[in-house]
Structure formats: C-alpha cells, structure tokens
Design a protein around this nucleic acid. Structure first.
Lengths: 123, 123
DNA sequence: CGATATACCTAAAGGTTCAAGGTAATGACA
DNA sequence: TGTCATTACCTTGAACCTTTAGGTATATCG
C-alpha cells in the first residue's frame, strides 16, 4: 500500500518556501495555493494538500502568516496573507536556498580545476 | 537533540549526491570523503560522519560503490570507489538536481511576469 | 437527487539527517 | 612509559519533513 516515498529528490523546505513565495504576490486560500504552485512551475512541483495544510498551520503559529475568514459564494474560506515577519522569512529562505544551490553547484562543477590533490604522503 | 539548526534546510539527497561526486574524482575512504566535501564547498556544506557512513553503506549495498581494504601505516582503511552504475547514478542525480533548481528558481523569480495564464483572456 | 469540484483537515508511514557518543590505532611529546 | 591529539570507523536515538490516503462538508450542475 502506501509506498510512502517521503522526501523525494531534493525537495526539503521547498514547499514552505513555495507557500511563502506564492503568498508574497497576494493573499490566497489553501486550495488556491496548492494550485498556484503547480501552475507556476508548469506542473513540475506538485505538492498535495496534505503537504500544504500542515505547513500553513505551522506558519500561522509562527506568526509568519495571518488568516482571515471570508465567505465567497456561501462557502467559508480561510485566506492567508503574508505578515511582515513572513516577508522577512521569505527573503531569508531565498537567500539560504541560493546559498545551497551555489554550494552544490560548486561541488558538482568544481572538478579538477586549481585545487591541489589530497597528497599528504610526505614524511 | 532535535535536529538543530546547524545546517539549513533544502539538503535532502544532497549528502548522497556529494558522496558520489567526490568519489567520481577518485577513490577515497570515508573520513576523507567527509572532509573533501567540506573543503570543496568552502566549509558551507559540512556533513558529519554520522550522515556519511550510513550513506556509504547504503550505496555499497546498492552496488553503486565498490570497496577495497587498504592498509596504510598499519591502519586498515576502507576505500570506496565509484562503480559504473554509480557513475550513472551520479549523472542522473545531477540531472534531477538541476531540474529542481530550475523549478524553484522559476517559482522564486517568475513573479507575475512572462508566463501566460491558463485562461487566455477570451473576449 | 447524484455527481463533481471546491475547500479544509488529519493520521499513519516512511525516509533522512543530525548530534553525540563509542571504539581503536597511530604518532608526538615529555 | 604514559598520555594526548588525531585519524578512522561505526552506531544509536531523536527529530524532522513529506507523502499517501483517507475524511468531512458545501455549492453547482444535470
């Protein structure tokens, strides 16, 4: 049954970053966030609701998101909006992300240029 | 305790990739691998031995690494070398990594410009 | 009414990484 | 000789995150 393949490739912390980023462009409710992410990445990044909602709740608890109840068409929806601290966190997360990308890139590409090989054998 | 906050997030599957990449440049033993990674990334990526050894064992079990016992200075060391399948896996991992990077980048940068919405504004 | 899409939420499961410890052998030093 | 620091290898326990797969409820359309 549930194959439970958890953290697939290199996505870790990415859903959280995605949520923050999407909300940066304007308030949305959970269901819409899920689809915005998919839409924005051309379907490459598809996080299910089961991944997003827990994050939404966590971020709200941390004060990074504000919520507001809205009624649209008789349906109640919870609209999430980025707080000031949320914006800050987004910036920080982006920064860390770039940092990781750079490091990994250096690792991948930084093959045999310049660096001296590990030859301790002297004595 | 807890997973601490030493290393930022976004590192999932990265240690594995790092191990494969480092070994691509030549056989090494575990301890050296740990330090090679740190050295190559200028200390940005520092995975402890507790992270690396389990990966080493897993990769060996999967046939991606070959081992050879060596005796250097009376000490026995286990030297790991990339297998053919390991090389293939490295290439594939790099590819997936680039893929994720692209997607996230699109998400971060692709605010509301450029991409055509799904609804091409009829009438 | 029944089916579908929207909207929200939770539980169980599984894999990953981390910190922190443990064991040994060597070489240096006094 | 004894001890210290370093190298090398290994294991454990906890905590974390994401996913799958459900569960609930309302509105709209045929």
């Amino acid at each position: 049954m549930a194959k439970g393949n958890t953290n697939p490739d290199f996505l870790n912390g990415v859903p959280e970053l995605a949520v923050l980023r999407v909300l940066f462009d304007g308030p949305q409710h959970g269901y819409a966030i899920v689809q915005s992410i998919s839409k924005r990445t051309g379907g490459t990044l598809q996080f299910g609701e089961g991944s997003i909602y827990p994050i939404l709740h966590k971020l709200e608890q941390q004060g990074l998101l504000m919520t507001r109840r809205e009624v649209a068409g008789g349906r109640e929806r919870i609209v999430y909006r980025l707080s000031k601290r949320g914006s800050k966190q987004l910036e920080e997360s982006c920064h860390r992300w770039q940092n990781v990308v750079q490091s990994v890139q250096a690792l991948i590409e930084g093959g045999d240029n310049g660096l001296s090989p590990v030859v301790p054998a002297a004595s």
